[in-house]
Write a protein that binds this DNA or RNA. Structure first.
Lengths: 339, 339
DNA sequence: TTGTATGCGTTATCAT
DNA sequence: ATGATAACGCATACAA
């Protein structure tokens, strides 16, 4: 059994003693209807508990006022905080938010496109870093969309995220300001845009301070905790050691800390570690992690704002919105003695 | 500019040389159409790239195949993992998932009801622990819904979650098995169902082992980290101390650990701490937290399964699905010397 | 097995 | 300022 039969615009019209056209106008263009009738309509609406049927409305208007959010892992803590911003802004502007968890699965990605192609969503927020499988073939027209967190390589999709180069530069300079000169970068990768950009900021900071870039101090990593651990172990099989580790993200930094702790080093006295992201556990590790905080709420709000502007036909003000991350000083970085 | 004009059922019918009714049947009731025509239709669909317009379909069918998820805090890590399960199961069954972040705000809660009353969502998942403001007034009919994580007090809303009593019992018995007798419970509260139930399990375990319940060892707390810290400090102003702390949840346990660490106690040698939930940081604190793990993915799947069964008119098999949490042994609990 | 025709609840055009 | 009416795209009762 369904919940009770809902009142329609016709019920309201009957009670108010007007036509359905007038009711529709009273709702959507109140100025175009006489005060007296508008009041009658308003009262009739109240009496019936009428709500516009969104389906009929969407069918007629050819827009659903829904936004589809595609993310590889909805459970990722980095995602959920951005989601809050996305949802807040969307809700404020009268839009609803649909969630699609793709798990980086091509089938699932293309499956979610039905929401677009069937008019169930007007726009797309992409966390995946690439066009959904199915669009790449170019056989479908692209709906308005903006990439978040991970830029879409190659395309010219508007992007909202953190300024990775600048953030990495600030992070590295913080280490330098604490007297460090031999600073390792953990997380070299040519595959991920984020890694590329953060490495770039790291190098810029070094160069800016006249510190030579030592390839031996740059280790590969894909951003996982395991990669941080592996890189650290790798570092110790040689005898060229840094005094500080700048990690491409907090997850990697955690791996480094675990590895270093296991080797019984006294942190941060013997090694300093710097992360990037400020994910929730950063303040709970020992030593608590000094890192760059992503303004996640703001990222979500800006991204949704940009998408809705696109949707409303305004020219995209910018193809890229880069927010500055904030340096969060905790206990994993120590000043180094003179060397 | 919108994306290209989409093909409709009429375009397909024209190409296949049949009526729209036949196309509709070929899609929805394939057996009711001759093989030859079905093939022609299928081919025409492929050629046009036709997708059913969900809005028109929903309008006609009076169901949207959408589920609205109402949560007080979408950013809560405990939420996002359950969300994965919810989304997975929904997607598997052809349903979409809509997110509503209420922030415990009555206005926002009632605002989201428009999704229900306007037919944009067929069912409701509640994380809030109470009926949305607006339903409580009783003026609207309730849609099919199920409560997750936090049961809805008073109503007879089907609930899916963890067996809190049993979990708390197992947790407390683990402490007992390690020789503890003076076990504190941090997180007494009459306001929250979860706290009530876990305290109940704690007491059951104690009674079951013939240990007297000492009211001095039961401290109030609302489940926040700060409440854990405060309770611990409160404990030390008196001289009656436990050997172990069973905390109503991991957040509380973290507060206890912070407080104990600050007092320079050697954990877990001097005090054992047990949490509940197994949230992400649990393995990163020092000492890493022994706790009860919630089967979050499973909870989400079960909840969605139950809701969809309701939606499809099947009688609710059960009003309550209680999943057993799993004991995760880490390093915050130690065996106590004989006393 | 297939086709015709109606209605789902709106918005928008065109009269009045 | 208001009303009659035609779409929007589909599913289905009924006819053939």
């Amino acid at each position: 059994m369904q919940h009770q039969k809902l009142a329609t615009i016709e019920d309201v019209a009957a009670i108010a003693g007007v036509s359905i056209a007038t009711v529709s106008r009273a709702i959507n263009e109140p100025t175009k209807v006489a005060d007296a009738t508008r009041r009658r309509v308003t009262e009739a609406i109240a009496r019936t508990g009428y709500t516009t049927n969104a389906m009929a409305r969407s069918l007629r208007m050819r827009r659903s006022n829904m936004i589809l959010i595609l993310a590889p892992d909805v459970g990722d803590p980095n995602f959920s905080n951005i989601l809050v911003g996305l949802e807040t802004e969307a809700s404020k502007r009268g839009y609803g938010v649909l969630i699609g968890n793709t798990q980086n699965d091509a089938t699932r990605e293309s499956d979610y496109l039905r929401f677009i192609s069937s008019n169930q969503a007007d726009g797309l927020i992409l966390f995946t870093g690439h066009l959904p499988y199915g669009y790449s073939s170019g056989e479908m027209r692209l709906p308005p969309m903006v990439a978040v967190n991970e830029p879409v390589l190659g395309g010219d999709i508007p992007f909202v995220g953190v300024d990775n180069v600048e953030g990495a530069r600030v992070a590295t300079e913080h280490l330098i300001s604490q007297g460090h000169r031999r600073i390792a970068f953990i997380g070299h990768s040519t595959a991920k845009a984020v890694n590329l950009l953060r490495e770039q900021g790291y190098k810029a900071a070094l160069s800016g301070h006249g510190i030579a870039i030592d390839p031996h101090l740059i280790l590969a990593g894909d951003g996982t905790t395991e990669s941080g651990r592996a890189a650290t172990e790798h570092m110790f099989v040689r005898d060229v050691l840094p005094t500080a580790f700048f990690c491409v993200n907090d997850a990697t930094a955690l791996g480094v800390i675990i590895s270093l702790n296991a080797r019984r080093y006294d942190l941060p006295r013997q090694f300093s570690i710097m992360g990037f992201d400020d994910i929730s556990f950063a303040s709970f590790v020992t030593p608590s992690l000094t890192t760059m905080k992503q303004p996640r709420l703001k990222i979500g709000e800006e991204a949704m704002d940009l998408l809705l502007a696109l949707l409303e036909g305004k020219p995209a003000r910018r193809r890229e919105v880069l927010l500055r991350p904030e340096l969060i000083v905790r206990n994993s970085v120590a000043r180094i003695g003179q060397d």
